[in-house]
């Protein structure tokens, strides 16, 4: 089943059996991608949407010098470009980070779903609103947090998203990102990220080696990153995120 991770454990949005079957039947193709490949370019007219099944992908924007800012990281279960269904084009590029597999759903199938299944349509809308909530958290991270907190926040967020997707047991996960990618997520240089990763390790919060993240103290990492998972709309986050402690406001 290709859609098993889509909206998994999302509050009020988990798919019913019939909704999941309908989405599965709308898949026209399953594509595999090599790592570090362009998947969709900004401005291209899109007639299909892409559900990530396996691997990591990203949305990004380049500045005039060609330097990349990652504006979203996608984990299995995410639609990469569902917003292009109403918008028809993207305002950012999409690329793979690791090798990846994705299910393709033509927009013509989404038209039929939108006409016939309002509750499933609401859940697809939920998915794009969840994207927007994550973007707001990324704005907060870049605007308010210092370097170590930015990385801590991102690692807590990714841990929570992967837990929700069934891909992290809460303490250890394969991230698939290099320190250079992490720099492009957090608006830092690779030298700065390298120093932050060392600090996180020395403070006993987490390690990041060979793209494998091991969280040593989730509670302190959560506080250090001012991470509050409410914006991820996960069912019962206190049950699913061990030792979650709300940061003091």
């Amino acid at each position: 089943m290709f859609t098993e991770r889509f909206l998994r454990h999302k509050r009020g949005a988990t798919l019913s059996t019939a909704e999941r079957a309908r989405l599965e039947s709308g898949i026209s193709e399953v594509r595999t991608y090599k790592a570090r490949r362009l998947v969709a370019r900004a401005g291209e007219r899109l007639t299909e949407s892409t559900l990530l099944i396996d691997g990591f992908m990203c949305r990004y924007l380049d500045d005039r010098a060609g330097l990349r800012q990652l504006v979203a990281i996608h984990v299995p279960g995410d639609f990469l470009d569902l917003h292009a269904y109403p918008l028809q084009t993207l305002d950012h590029d999409v690329a793979t980070i690791t090798g990846a597999t994705a299910a393709i759903i033509p927009h013509s199938e989404l038209d039929i779903i939108a006409d016939a299944m309002p509750e499933l349509t609401r859940k697809l809308w939920f998915s794009t609103l969840l994207d927007a909530a994550i973007h707001r958290a990324w704005l907060f991270r870049l605007g308010r947090l210092d370097a170590i907190a930015r990385v801590a926040h991102f690692l807590c967020e990714t841990n929570a998203r992967l837990m929700s997707a069934g891909l992290s047991e809460g303490r250890r996960f394969a991230l698939g990102l290099t320190q250079s990618d992490l720099a492009e997520v957090c608006g830092l240089t690779t030298v700065h990220v390298n120093r932050v990763v060392r600090q996180l390790r020395e403070e006993g919060l987490c390690t990041f080696r060979s793209s494998l993240v091991e969280i040593l103290d989730l509670e302190r990492l959560t506080i250090r990153g001012q991470f509050n998972p409410a914006y991820l709309y996960i069912d019962d986050p206190a049950d699913r995120l061990p030792s979650f402690t709300r940061p003091k406001s």
């Binding site: 210092d146 370097a147 240089t189 700065h192």
Partner: peptide, 12 residues
Amino acid sequence: VVLDGQDGLATT
């Protein structure tokens, strides 16, 4: 030189 500070200051 890496410069860190409050209010999101983080530059190299």
